[in-house]
């Protein structure tokens, strides 16, 4: 019969020093999935307001939200009354030519009166205020969009899991 000897090695003791718990700052993680003018502002306003109060904020643009951060579309977002039950506009009126343009123009004017910046300027403000601005990798690939097609305020194109890592401990909003 073979004899087996088992050598028992003693592992050096590792003393783990816990870092003093850092005060966790409140954080907001906002997913922007729509690309119309009226749906672009809620996420931007909230992210900016958070930063103004010292709350961390990350914005994640996916699906039509990519339009908000695309160089070609950022300052040409439209208000789209067709099929938009939230707008309380009779559908038969909303399909008429020029209605979307008129609705967009009206909304832009009203936003201007409230000192709301146009979308690209708003993104710059939010970026300068220290919020994270991310594009969804899947949506970007689906639309054949590269980083160069996105406004320079976009930090990175990341996937859903990476975003969820960043959103740990954050209050999550889906727009």
């Amino acid at each position: 019969m073979e004899e087996f000897t088992v050598q028992q090695k003693t592992m050096p003791e590792f003393i783990v020093q816990e870092e003093p718990a850092k005060e966790k700052n409140r954080k907001l993680a906002i997913i922007c999935s729509k690309g119309s003018l009226d749906m672009a502002y809620p996420g931007l306003v909230l992210a900016n307001a958070a930063r103004m109060m010292g709350i961390d904020a990350d914005l994640f643009f996916t699906f039509w939200g990519i339009d908000i951060i695309s160089k070609s579309k950022v300052d040409h977002l439209q208000v789209t009354p067709v099929g938009n039950p939230a707008m309380h506009m009779p559908q038969m009126v909303s399909v008429l030519p020029g209605i979307s343009m008129m609705a967009t123009s009206m909304m832009s004017k009203e936003l201007g009166k409230l000192d709301m910046p146009p979308v690209h300027e708003f993104l710059t403000m939010i970026h300068d205020a220290g919020a994270g601005i991310y594009a969804c990798r899947m949506a970007a690939e689906m639309m054949h969009i590269q980083k160069e097609d996105l406004v320079e305020e976009v930090d990175e194109i990341i996937g859903a899991m990476e975003f969820l890592e960043k959103a740990e401990g954050a209050q999550l909003l889906f727009i």
Binding site: R51, M52, M53, G54, D128, A129, G130
Partner: peptide, 9 residues
Amino acid sequence: YELFPQGPA
């Protein structure tokens, strides 16, 4: 934001 960190408003 650098001059007035954590909530300039």
